[in-house]
Amino acid sequence: MNVFRLAGDMTHLLSIIILLLKIRATKSCTGISLKTQELYVIVFLTRYLDLFTKYISFYNTTMKLVFLGTSISIVWYMRYHKVVKQTYNKDQDTFRHYFLAIPCFLLALLIHHEFTVIEVLWTFSIYLEAVAILPQLVLLQRSRNIDNLTGNYVFLLGAYRALYLVNWVYRYFTENHLVRWIPWLSGLVQTTLYADFFYYYIKSWKNNEKLQLPA
């Protein structure tokens, strides 16, 4: 494992910790899209089916279990915690899951490495992860006030895949020129979706102003 991949994983982990911290400490999930969080549960459940079939490393197994556990607990808080669920912006979080999930599934049926259940679901999870942030970005655009924890959460979540892109370039040159179009192109799409958010996040940080996305 190289330093870029490790930095990417740590950024991803940190983003989730910040989100859980926000939910637990402030007892509020204002500004967080339940649709996006549910899509991440689907992403992790379909990607980590190989937990049962192959072992890569202690690190991989532990991280997979942490991502599964934390994503499920975030959804649990937002749907069932008696205080937290009242802070959920249901009326603004209207993006439909299936607009994203169905096309990703069809694409995975068409473009994959191997036509097996595990492989198609893995590919589906890569495609779905690329676009799963969309409901969250739509919700942020509709929010008048984006609190710091929410802004930092989305920033770190976007930075994670950008670091993976660097990791893939590094691996290409150091590991026998392995080519992996499916994650590469999906990761590129995923990072591009954040471009606009990154611009306003950095601008607000430099000017020391409150983050707000133009409608």
Partner: peptide, 10 residues
């Protein structure tokens, strides 16, 4: 440019 199947990332 053959795709390598290599799922060792998260």
């Amino acid at each position: 440019f053959q795709e390598t199947k290599f799922h060792d990332e998260l």
